[in-house]
Design a protein around this nucleic acid. Structure first.
Lengths: 225, 225
DNA sequence: TTCGTGATTTCACCTGATTTTAACCTCTCT
DNA sequence: AGAGAGGTTAAAATCAGGTGAAATCACGAA
């Protein structure tokens, strides 16, 4: 999620930038209205945070200008003055919400989330399984370990998903055969062993900590440590 | 414009109702959460104003309940308690804005206008889907990539729309068959493959960055990169 | 109605990737 | 050492997806 902050007080700007980045937002900061306008026109932000009192072009005018350019990004206005007239003026200029300085960071966060909720597509929500530093992205059908993308085939993916959903629990070959391969009787095959081997090469090789463990005579277990 | 006010204090309720009616809003008042819920479910309001402290079902629970019924009408929460925790709880329950009592009527008005504007805007901009430099114009029934117009047939359009609405997510052939072709059982056809091929020729050929990806054994995914 | 055009679907073939088999290897425990 | 359990590897079998051409369908024009 990308946010533009237009704010000229260096302290406040960096406080907000850091705080939002900790919440894994992408943050651009502009120190005056003109730079803010250029950034807003050339990027697509999810929300714009606008201080009313900034050099070159004030918040009201900037908001109006963006709206007239047909930019519909939600705008959150910040102001030091708490009078109602300012709030009304802000809304009239095209702001979607208003926050009076000084504010608590948690409230800024809550309001940003509420504003962005509308525009963000629900399909973009992550759908992840995690065990230690291994994640399985159920949307993209891909695994990641230590940030590195690991491509999996359909069967590999299904097997890893089953192991991850049963983390820290020993699953027998019979369970795996039924749930992943839909085999309900003993065929004397060793596909499962072969696929565990495939997974190990992709998921555990190159990493000091192994996640896939063999429990002799019982089955396999995916577990940290 | 229709507004539902859920408020149990008779004085405040009638003050708000009269004030809003003077601004030519249509106003319904509910004196407890249960009545409010029934009204909200059976009418279509532009905004709902919700006091946190009302009998039968409080504001948070009511907001949550409406959201779970998939009602997306903007909600403005009213509360006597100004603490931040309440605000955050309100937003988490699904509120879009928050106002602390006592408030000035003008501020209520400004916030209501801002909230209702938001839905109108989003409904107007709902005619364009974008992924990377690919746009799908739902009004014109046309796609554009890098500014170039791409004409699509009805089925091509429906398929691309489905892929774009599920961007960055692998969609299976079964999903596609059901949502785009309305086929609910396996017919052994390969129309989907053929149509993906058609789309690739129009959307990805001639462009260095491909957007349509095959995930073997799982389906297709539309994604940047 | 018939015709013609473009849209949609089917079919057959091809290629490369995935899945499975099977033979052989390694380790551990007795 | 030998048996049993699991690991590894390569090759074979199978499958999934891409593609062009042809068949069929839908629909408006003559």
């Amino acid at each position: 999620m990308k946010i533009l902050v237009v704010e000229d007080e260096p302290k406040l700007a960096s406080f907000v930038k850091k705080g939002l980045e900790e919440q894994s937002f992408e943050v651009d900061v502009a120190f005056d209205g003109q730079i803010g306008r250029n950034l807003a026109l050339s990027n697509s932000y999810d929300v714009i945070v606008l201080d009313v009192n900034v050099p070159k072009m004030n918040g009201y005018d900037l908001a109006k200008s963006l709206r007239s350019e047909n930019i519909k990004t939600p705008i959150l206005m910040l102001t030091a003055m708490g009078s109602l007239d300012n709030k009304v003026a802000g809304f009239e200029a095209g702001a979607d919400d208003y926050l009076v300085k000084p504010f608590e960071f948690r409230e800024l966060l809550a309001r940003l989330r509420a504003l962005s909720k509308r525009t963000i597509d629900t399909s973009l929500q992550a759908n992840l399984l995690k065990v230690a530093d291994l994640e399985l992205d159920l949307n993209e059908k891909i695994a990641r370990r230590g940030g590195k993308r690991i491509e999996l085939t359909a069967k590999e993916f299904a097997l890893l998903e089953y192991l991850m959903r049963n983390r820290s629990r020993v699953v027998s070959r019979i369970d795996i055969a039924e749930k992943v391969w839909d085999i309900h009787f003993d065929t004397g095959t060793n596909v499962i062993d072969v696929y565990v081997n495939f997974l190990r090469k992709k998921v555990d090789k190159n990493f000091p900590v192994k996640l896939i463990h063999t429990v002799i005579g019982m089955g396999y277990m995916l577990k940290e440590e």
